[in-house]
């Protein structure tokens, strides 16, 4: 089973993503902040990470930098409620960027594309 780590500070979103992705056949681990995420990332090998951007303490972009420094091969998909981060050069390190939507089809499609790349 493909192992995915979902990082988001909002509980409802974590729940939604976990259920939706599990329905898609992924094994999902969730983390509520950067600290939890790094602990999970360092203890378990994941096939892919889905990162929120705006979180208290450390934001998703900084977390992306740390993760990529430790393992540049692991695919990271940024998934944020911001539209404009698409223009921020620091997110070039990620493998894909998806704007959060109640319709998760785009996210699911992106995950499949990133994995097959």
């Amino acid at each position: 089973m493909i192992k995915v780590l979902v990082v988001d500070d909002e509980e409802n979103i974590r729940l939604l993503y976990r259920e939706e992705l599990e329905d898609e056949g992924y094994a999902v681990t969730v983390a509520a902040n950067a600290k939890e995420a790094l602990e999970a990332f360092r203890s378990t090998p994941f096939d892919m990470i889905v990162l929120d951007i705006k979180m208290p303490d450390m934001d998703g972009i900084e977390l992306l930098r740390i993760i990529k420094e430790e393992n540049k091969d692991i695919p990271v998909v940024l998934c944020s409620a911001y539209g404009r981060y698409k223009q921020d050069f620091r997110i070039w390190a990620c493998d894909a960027y998806v704007v959060k939507s109640a319709d998760l089809d785009e996210l699911k499609l992106t995950l499949r594309q990133v994995l097959s790349a």
């Binding site: 909002e10 409802n12 979103i13 939604l16 939706e20 409620a81 539209g83 959060k100 939507s101 109640a102």
Partner: peptide, 21 residues
């Protein structure tokens, strides 16, 4: 609007996402 959109979009994602489910 960028900030506002962000704040509104998160709860919307939950509402809409769970409504779908």
């Amino acid at each position: 609007s960028a900030e506002l959109a962000h704040e509104i979009r998160n709860p919307l994602v939950s509402i809409g996402g769970f409504a779908r489910r």
